[in-house]
Design a protein around this nucleic acid. Structure first.
Length: 913
DNA sequence: ACACTGCATGTATGG
DNA sequence: CATACATGCAGTGTA
């Protein structure tokens, strides 16, 4: 029967280990308290449970496979059995057991170490819960193994806080000496188990508030672990030498997940994937989460996670039998490396791994460098914004001794069992040099441990991994990411750290050319900033895609009538409830010009043809296909040939790929290339009419006017009131007229060619289905096909164009940049924004649209002008739309440039258009 | 005049 | 928005 002893020495109550509500993940009721005095127990049940005398090994009860506590703790490889023991995941799977989280025992029964395991049940969640237990059902941190001790401390500390029993800790009283701290996590645990070590009480209540965050992140850890193999950021205890030595056979170097709950999750999608992908290449890298034994905030930022290589470990540990526990690292800032001699310590790190200090004066700290030289720094803090700012003072000699500069990284490790603090370093400048010269450097920017050092070291694996992930997931050569990766690489590693003289470095702001000056300045924070930007940009891409797709899936709330509101002369439908997501559907335009909507049955997955104006609910099955009696059940024949379906999917893929690609193009290109691309597509005619496509281009490429923007909108007369009259002969209007004329003539010509082509193909007995065009889709399946593709495709250009126009018109109303005063020129009532009307209008033919807009002909100059004027107005009212309207014009540039070359004033505009 | 010290403040960053 | 942190800066000490 395991027991715990109350930390309160005056109490000393020993109690058997029980399952307590305190283990609940989110309950916030950390009741792991002594029943007598309410103090926290000195150790964690979890540690005890899984880090027991048998070294944490368990045997699968079915196959006998031995599973280490890491597997247990990770929970990714085992299932804990109600009857005791564990099953490896494969056996568990075969036996039909479902993976599940481990839950607290609501009965509070006494549980020994083994019993704990036994009582961790592997039962389907549903079957295990009764109504009353649901409330108490809380995931437990079974992944606690070595680090569980730290977690338990945090639990206890949290307890302290919550119970107001916080006692300002005096180092000599409660905080273990560095020697005591200086043990492997395992030994730390053992000490704790034996009660020989006083778990640190918080010296700062605030410092322990991370507990709940810890637990919250646990669940995420669960997820990530379930989803994938061990993640990139290894458990420090495992990745440190001690683990390698002890568990070299069983423990992959990079095992991250078990300690993830103690530290912030890495940037989403970056670290895991990066290191998975590059696992082989970085196998020797120790990207270690720091030990969780610290008493401080557990939320160490990943940038402080110690990254250490075998070489460095070897260098630090030398030939001794000591083990090195990487604690944290910090890239030196200019201030750190400056002559002030103050090294700002990350607060969390200082509180976690350095002795607690209650007075600002702090205490002297002996730290040994890798050469064995011992330094004494003053470890102290400054009050700062109701917080503390920890610094190591007197580091200048050490910094200089190591010849460190801003951008270099100092690492703090602990040598066990002595507990000696070790200060290592990595030179930032190494990274560039080694990286550049080392042929073994991974082509994607990931490097072996020997080649990765601060700067690039910190980021490249992440970036490359992310890039790799994207590439693997999206099948997309991600030049943008690569570029970012390079940029980041240079930012992290190549920043001008090569100025050896610190003085000179401080002066380079004056000495360096302007282009270089910001680089130095940037260097200070560009790392994290760029990383953030990078990730954000990636997220943004993802989000944007999602958003764009969502736009087309949004439906008005079905049962709610909108209230019409007028905002700056624009009418909006305002719904009391948020829009709903409708079902994805695909619009198809046949060669005959007939539009179709296709949707996939949620039950049988067959594609069914639907009227174009139908809005489907999120769930839709053949049963609801009231438009086709022969296919109103799933047994109805499939209407869509595999070929066409493949075509749809393929085009969808291509579209997304293309969209991703266009999204990553530098903004500089957006103005021109985006317009040109749209223009080309418009002239080519096929699918530009697709509203979704145009919407993509619009929102992606030109959401807002920018200074220097030379688009058709921006070159309009200023103030926005200079509405062009039909008689206007300004450059813009003339250009518009000319281009539109050219455009339409060309389109006419192409249309006639295509009609001829259709006729020819029909004669060749080609199936009409094959001629269908995936032209418009609510799910962005419609594409901007390549020109070559377009030429071979058959479509109804007019319909496409009509959609374009309609979409342009409609979107013009939606765009908040639209100019109210131009609205008068819009068709009356057309400014009514309605999702349904949008869809309906999208199905209108061009002729209908033109009639409605009084544009029965576009062939005459005047009519041409009218059309262009309308479009110009639409454009004026919608910055985000003008691409749609005027890009075609710009696209005609090629053709018309021949006749416009001598049009001086126009030419510039044409170029920019 | 320079160095040091302690605090204040602006910015980056994460939640 | 809160916090962490890099750095500025004023006050003080010292050569």
């Amino acid at each position: 029967m395991a027991s715990r002893t109350c930390m309160n020495e005056s109490c000393g109550t020993s109690t058997s280990i029980q399952w307590r509500k305190g283990w609940a993940l989110r309950s916030g009721e950390f009741a792991d308290l002594c029943d007598e005095c309410g103090s926290a127990y000195e150790q964690s049940t979890f540690c005890d449970m899984f880090h027991s005398k048998d070294s944490g090994w368990r045997e699968c009860t079915l196959c006998g496979k031995r599973l280490h506590c890491g597997c247990i703790s990770s929970q990714s490889l085992i299932e804990l059995l109600d009857t005791g023991g564990v099953n490896c995941r494969s056996c568990a799977k075969n036996s039909g057991l479902q993976p599940m989280a481990i839950y607290e025992r609501p009965d509070g029964s006494d549980t020994s170490k083994a019993e704990h395991v036994n009582k961790l049940q592997t039962m389907p969640l549903d079957s295990q819960l009764d109504g009353g237990s649901i409330e108490r059902l809380k995931p437990l941190q079974l992944r606690f193994s070595k680090e569980g001790n730290g977690a338990s401390r945090m639990l206890q500390m949290h307890n302290d806080d919550k119970n107001g029993s916080f006692v300002q800790m005096k180092q000599e009283e409660v905080f273990p000496s560095m020697g005591e701290l200086g043990c492997t996590f395992l030994s730390t645990f053992n000490q704790a188990s034996n009660g020989s070590s006083k778990a640190a009480k918080p010296d700062n209540g605030k410092a322990y508030m991370g507990s709940t965050e810890t637990y919250e992140s646990l669940e995420q850890t669960n997820l990530s672990m379930t989803l994938g193999p061990p993640l990139g950021n290894s458990d420090p205890f495992r990745c440190a030498v001690v683990d390698e030595r002890v568990q070299s056979k069983t423990s992959p170097v990079l095992q991250g997940p078990r300690s993830r709950h103690l530290f912030p999750k890495p940037p989403r999608s970056t670290i895991p994937t990066g290191l998975e992908i590059n696992a082989g290449m970085v196998s020797q890298i120790r990207v270690a989460r720091p030990p969780a034994e610290g008493r401080g905030r557990n939320q160490l930022l990943p940038r402080y996670w110690p990254r250490i290589t075998d070489q460095e470990l070897q260098q630090i540990s030398g030939d001794s039998n000591s083990t090195i526990v990487p604690l944290f690292e910090k890239m030196l800032s200019a201030s750190d490396a400056g002559r002030i001699g103050r090294l700002v310590l990350p607060k969390a790190c200082a509180e976690a791994y350095f002795p607690p200090i209650s007075q600002p004066e702090g205490l002297p700290l002996r730290i040994q460098d890798v050469k064995g030289k011992e330094w004494v720094f003053q470890f102290r803090f400054w009050p700062n914004n109701n917080s503390r700012m920890y610094v190591l003072e007197g580091v200048t000699p050490c910094i200089q001794s190591m010849q460190l500069q801003a951008g270099d990284t100092v690492t703090f490790s602990r040598m066990d069992p002595e507990g000696k603090l070790i200060m290592g370093f990595r030179k930032a400048s190494n990274s560039a040099a080694v990286q550049d010269t080392n042929p073994s450097a991974a082509p994607n920017g990931c490097h072996s441990s020997e080649t990765i050092f601060p700067g690039v070291y910190e980021n490249l694996p992440i970036l490359s991994g992310y890039s790799g992930l994207l590439q693997s997931l999206k099948g997309n050569a991600d030049s943008h990411l690569n570029a970012l990766s390079k940029q980041w690489n240079s930012a992290g590693g190549d920043i001008n750290w090569h100025i050896e003289n610190p003085q000179a470095r401080t002066m380079d702001g004056m000495l360096l050319p302007p282009s270089m000056v910001p680089e130095k300045k940037r260097a200070r924070n560009i790392g994290s900033k760029s990383k953030r930007l990078l990730i954000d940009s990636q997220d943004a891409l993802e989000l944007k895609l999602t958003w764009e797709e969502a736009q087309d899936l949004l439906r008005p709330p079905p049962t709610v009538k909108p209230s019409i509101v007028m905002i700056e002369d624009h009418v909006f439908e305002e719904y009391e409830e948020p829009p709903i997501f409708g079902k994805r559907s695909i619009f198809v335009i046949r060669s005959t010009g007939v539009q179709e909507q296709w949707a996939q049955c949620d039950s049988c997955s067959k594609w069914r043809r639907l009227p174009v104006d139908i809005l489907l609910p999120p769930k839709w099955t053949c049963m609801e296909n009231s438009w086709d009696q022969s296919r109103c059940s799933c047994s109805g024949p499939d209407e869509l040939s595999p070929r066409e379906l493949d075509n749809l999917l393929r085009l969808n893929k291509e579209f997304k790929k293309r969209r991703m690609a266009t999204s990553r193009k530098p903004t500089v290109e957006h103005e021109s290339s985006g317009l040109d691309a749209l223009a080309d597509a418009a002239i080519l005619g096929d699918n530009v009419g697709d509203s979704s496509t145009t919407s993509v281009a619009t929102t992606t490429k030109h959401p807002r006017h920018r200074p220097g923007c030379s688009c058709i909108v921006c070159i309009q007369p200023p103030s926005g009131k200079g509405k062009h009259k039909p008689t206007c002969t300004c450059n813009v209007c003339m250009t518009v007229k000319r281009r539109f004329k050219t455009l339409m003539m060309r389109k006419k010509k192409r249309q006639s060619e295509r009609e001829a082509e259709i006729a020819r193909r029909n004669q060749q007995s080609r199936g009409p289905r094959d001629e269908t065009e995936v032209d418009s889709t609510s799910t962005h399946v419609a594409l901007q096909p390549d020109a070559s593709e377009n030429d071979n495709r058959v479509s109804n250009e007019l319909d496409a164009k009509s959609q374009s126009n309609v979409a342009a018109t409609n979107k013009g109303h939606l765009d908040l940049n639209c100019h109210p005063e131009r609205e008068a020129d819009m068709q009356a009532g057309s400014n009514r924004v309605s999702m349904i009307s949008l869809l309906k209008e999208a199905s209108l033919s061009l002729d209908t649209y033109l009639k409605e807009n009084g544009l029965t002909s576009l062939t005459s100059e005047q009519q041409l002008y009218s059309a262009s004027n309308v479009q110009a107005q639409a454009t004026d009212e919608s910055e985000g739309q003008h691409n749609d309207d005027y890009c075609p014009l710009s696209g005609a540039q090629d053709q018309e440039s021949e006749s416009e070359e001598d049009n001086g004033p126009d030419k510039n505009q044409n170029d920019t258009l």
